[in-house]
Design a protein around this nucleic acid. Sequence first.
DNA 1: CGCCCTCTTGATCTCCTTCAATGACAGTGG
DNA 2: CCACTGTCATTGAAGGAGATCAAGAGGGCG
Lengths: 245, 245
Amino acid sequence: MPNYPLTRFHEQASLSEVEAEVLRNMGDPEIVYRRQSVIRRQRDPVDGIYLLIEGWATSSLCLPAGQRQIVKVHITGDMMGTPSMVLDAAADALTAVTECRVAKVPLTRMRSLLIDYPRLGPLLFMAVQIERLALMDIVAAMGKSSARERLVRLLLDFHDRLIKIGMVEGGRFDLPLTQELLGDVLGLTAVHVNRTMRLLEREGLIARHGQCIVLGDIEALRRISPLPPRRIRFDPAWLPAPGEM
Amino acid sequence: MPNYPLTRFHEQASLSEVEAEVLRNMGDPEIVYRRQSVIRRQRDPVDGIYLLIEGWATSSLCLPAGQRQIVKVHITGDMMGTPSMVLDAAADALTAVTECRVAKVPLTRMRSLLIDYPRLGPLLFMAVQIERLALMDIVAAMGKSSARERLVRLLLDFHDRLIKIGMVEGGRFDLPLTQELLGDVLGLTAVHVNRTMRLLEREGLIARHGQCIVLGDIEALRRISPLPPRRIRFDPAWLPAPGEM
DNA sequence: CGCCCTCTTGATCTCCTTCAATGACAGTGG
DNA sequence: CCACTGTCATTGAAGGAGATCAAGAGGGCG
């Protein structure tokens, strides 16, 4: 059994024992994808969603003109591919950045889970709203901030997400994305990502050792970031309690 | 009773008579907001969501540094303010562009509706995924396209949404946004929006008469747009049928 | 050992911003 | 009826953030 880590859900709402158990085991047996390999191509028929049990992966859109934009960098514990649930053909490509362990959940199983555990609908609704907020913040940052501010925001975002799953030690974490990929996330060229990063390094705000990055002065970085981190409301008023539905 | 127009839902899934009736009447009695007035401020406590029964409104984020980014332009029939349902303080400000008729739905009522009509959870999940896809497309356009391409995409997006509610005649529709507001949507300055728009006009691709805009050659505009319109899947495989839950 | 990928840096170019001024128009009060 | 005011559209000139093009260096892996 895949034993999907429930990071996302445990951050946002209290789950009953049964619910937690169901979510952890909702996926097919896990599949291992090698670095760089494609988990699902853009335009593939949509027959399921994906649980990222371990690893880093990207969700990217290719414009007809050929450019690639990464719209989300997924880490251990993320659900992937859910935006395409409302389409016939997948909107985004899912690509493994590091080696990834992935469990697929067929849409037919989603259907029976939604019927058997009616609180799952509202819980998923909540999870998507959180993703939507993240995209709103990205749009605001892209529209109104400089390359430097956006890069700092992205690094802090990685930091804040990784720290919840115990992948940060003293501001230091593994960042397996190349500068080209960072550019595709930020809407910048790899060259400009490099220059911006080197500047931050020279100012002593960050340090790098191979694939590792160290956020040396998080307070200073937070002052540079155009947006503060979001505080999600645990168990909001509209969410029916376990057992209530 | 507000009689909220179910544009959003009828586009995406078949509703039972009961469900349609419930959704149409879920709001408080409607309130009229004058042009420019604020429906809900950023950081206000979140105690409900809003149904836009008629009019144009914006959802915008203000960055700490003071810049405003519009993340969504709402038209008749849209649900507003739902991203803030996962927060204590509203993420976005809701502002009337034209005179607006708005019905509020208290979160406590959302809770009972979710319990009484369990298919509402999956339906809302679907509605948010559609919004999320729209934001993904915006991010891709902002990251990889020129001002001209983004403006064309926005105009076509308005066209495609307005045509579904019968507000377009022969490529012509009312566009009550100032160039400054368009700039805040696109992440551009009003000056550059003006120049870009005049250029499109001189090329004969669009025409303007006061608040009205005419998309003269929609095919040509679609070729300029960096992204084609999305085709939402009506009644996806994972969505339980009415009566099934 | 040699190849390819990634990082790095310089030089030049360009798209969009910034700053500034003008005109058109609607609303308002005398 | 008309001056007065504020908002919005328009255009020019100059400046800057980031793109593009090009080349070299380091490092992992066959």
